[in-house]
Design a binder for these strands. Structure first.
Lengths: 168, 168
DNA sequence: CATTTCGTTCAGTATTGACTGAACGATACC
DNA sequence: GGTATCGTTCAGTCAATACTGAACGAAATG
């Protein structure tokens, strides 16, 4: 018997999306749960709801935490760690992609530096790859900043407006 | 005895970058080789140079081909398949990311449609996620188009004889 | 027709990494 | 001090998949 609850369906879908993006499925499921429910969850709560071990809940929640996609919330007189959606999870997602590209740019540039001038053509092509990575990192970073701004705007007003189209 | 050739170093680095991005290491190495050498390679040539099996060379070359990052080149009176860098590999890389986001947008939207109006808040938040994916896909797509334009400018003078990719 | 030389496919292997259960240290409560 | 309840860590298991070797079909060559 498989769950027919639409929220659970969404949560599982997020797990699959995250998995196809190369991440752990459970991380996606946790994020989906926090997004859909819109309230803080304790580790034990998540583990029970998602039918996963406490260890996995802890590990993956902290993974999302390090990516800035969720945040810790404390409750007075409660020792438990509560996790909830971050303030700007989407901007952080894009930031993560940007950071990965920046790292690639750096690594490629280091490899490029070792290529002697006698191999000018190869050196140039490799340098162009590094530039591509770096420029893309810049580009994604501006998009992340834009998302961040939108999130801040949304927090102020009560009604949610669609993301304004970027200039060009 | 490890190779100290700077080109080989770059090729291995590309393999590692591709692997950390969730792809097969060999695909990255092939792309790095074609980029650095800047000339067409036959399958056997790649296999020998990279010390991989012919099967891996074939599989991964066709993976890159399907992603549009490399292209097939034919030589008169030569039955071998020669692969070389694509016309706009960087634009295609970004296109791939964009396409993945578009697919996620669609999947999330499908899940959103199943959520009843009685759970309005959850429904809204899920819809916002879908919008984020879709807008990001748009954004990345414009960046890919920009890269494509740059590549076209650079390629102005050159002419390369290419064979349209078709399945056997 | 036989042979060679391509590229692809497929079964098997090996490696990577996600996930779990159990043990542990820390902290609050009795 | 003793007990209970946290979260984290770690060794072990399991599943996914990258990669290989061998077999195969196709197409040119003799």
């Amino acid at each position: 018997m498989q769950s027919t609850d639409p929220i659970d369906r969404f949560v599982e879908q997020m797990g699959l999306i995250t998995q196809s993006d190369g991440g752990p499925r459970i991380a996606g499921r946790i994020f989906g749960l926090l997004l859909a429910e819109g309230r803080p969850f304790a580790l034990n709560e998540m583990a029970e709801r998602l039918k996963i071990s406490k260890a996995s809940a802890s590990t993956n929640a902290r993974l999302l935490l390090s990516a800035g996609m969720v945040q810790l919330v404390a409750r007075p007189g409660d020792r438990q760690d509560y996790y909830e959606m971050g303030a700007d999870p989407y901007g952080r997602m894009v930031d993560t992609i940007s950071a990965r590209m920046r790292r690639s740019a750096k690594q490629v540039l280091e490899a490029e530096a070792l290529i002697p001038d006698s191999q000018g053509d190869a050196k140039r092509r490799v340098r162009e790859l590094a530039i591509f990575y770096d420029r893309s990192a810049d580009f994604f970073s501006t998009w992340a900043a834009h998302l961040d701004q939108s999130a801040a705007d949304t927090d102020f007003g009560q009604q949610t407006e669609t993301v304004p189209s970027h200039d060009r």
